[in-house]
Nucleic acid binder design. Structure first.
Lengths: 205, 205
DNA sequence: CTCGAATTTGGTAGTGACTACCATATGGCT
DNA sequence: AGCCATATGGTAGTCACTACCAAATTCGAG
């Protein structure tokens, strides 16, 4: 970890920060990568060595939060699945709360730009797929197709809780606590407080 | 509904069909819109009047299937929510089964191209948001934020079931029945056959 | 049938994201 | 100091996509 890595990390953050600055000032669509590169005092070539696409500039932080939680879960092989899922959800929310302004900015940009929204959504689905993969390896039973199916459904519910909580959270700054909402979501699902397709007894309170 | 509309619909389908042909032959990334336009014997200008983006060429059918089910649900104001959700799920699957080859082609293209995948995922999320909107207006209670939250969770579960079923369905051509799988998913959720976050009694059978 | 209006079409010019490639500069190590 | 690996900036080019215009086509009215 010499000076090289330090400098790399610094320019990386500098580019991303300048990008967010320009995006919030002039909008995502009205900002060119050339302008971002100029603001960060690097060549466009260099910018593309650090970030794969213009959208990647925006989504890195959220992506890291999701990936970290999945890999953490992956390294807890003896944990009960239901506990692990709860822990993954809370872990993601904790990571996101590390930088609330950034998260809000990401969702704002996604709302005003279709391509950002698309890439954000793909990121969330990748999280679900990775999480489903971890679950799949721990599910018993001799029917792999069924296990894959159950894993996808289970991971999908976790993804849904996170997305729903974050959506409310970014729309009500400071008014709600993310982890509390997540626990409320789990209770609603457990107690039938959410209408489930084909489950008539799941009534709304 | 004169000759104009007929011709419009014909060229529209011609363009989309030629696009799929070229995509499956040479891949999404290695096909240019100019080539598609040339194959359909129209100008690139005309192609962009029919489809908003290159990805839009691929996703139109799936989008229509999802949108149709939501608007159908919207027009059934007196239906029980849980019955409506089940009906929406089955309706989407029925529509998709109308053209299985096209659905499979879409998912194949999404698997090999990040941009197609991103736009497909955004489409699915838009379905969830639209469905959540319909649910929201029918949920009782005096807390709009809570209702919005419940609607998002509920619609998200429907989205999840559809996505999970379709994923298995496209990977096992002819081996599984979509509607049967959807009903199985609903039963698994009802009986605790899917591990839910924070719900210890949801054990795998 | 024919003329005029509305719509559809193809073409042109241009912007901007992104890639491949090369020469140069910079940091790390002996 | 000097060598090697890596990081950087610049150039040229492709391709998706937009704005705009002139020609062709379709439709309805006389």
């Amino acid at each position: 970890m010499g000076l090289r890595e330090v400098k790399r990390e610094r320019t990386r953050r500098l580019i991303a920060d300048k990008a967010f600055e320009l995006f919030s000032d002039h909008g995502f669509g009205r900002t060119t990568v050339e302008q971002i590169a100029a603001a960060a005092e690097v060549g466009p070539s260099t910018l593309y060595r650090y970030f794969p696409t213009k959208e990647g500039l925006v989504l890195e932080f959220v992506d890291d939060c999701l990936a970290e939680a999945v890999s953490w879960f992956h390294e807890q092989p003896s944990m009960e699945l239901t506990d692990g899922l709860r822990a993954v959800i809370e872990r993601v929310l904790e990571q996101l709360e590390t930088n609330p302004d950034r998260v809000r900015a990401v969702f704002d940009l996604a709302e005003q730009n279709g391509s950002v929204s698309a890439h954000l959504n793909e990121l969330i689905w990748r999280f679900r797929n990775d999480l489903a993969d971890v679950l799949y390896r721990r599910l018993p039973g001799d029917d792999p197709r069924r296990a894959e199916f159950v894993a996808a459904l289970s991971a999908g519910i976790a993804m849904n809780i996170i997305e729903s909580v974050v959506r409310v959270w970014v729309d009500n700054p400071g008014a709600v606590d993310a982890k509390t909402m997540a626990r409320q979501a789990m209770r609603l699902l457990r107690t039938g407080g959410v209408p489930l397709p084909g489950v008539p007894n799941s009534a709304v309170l």
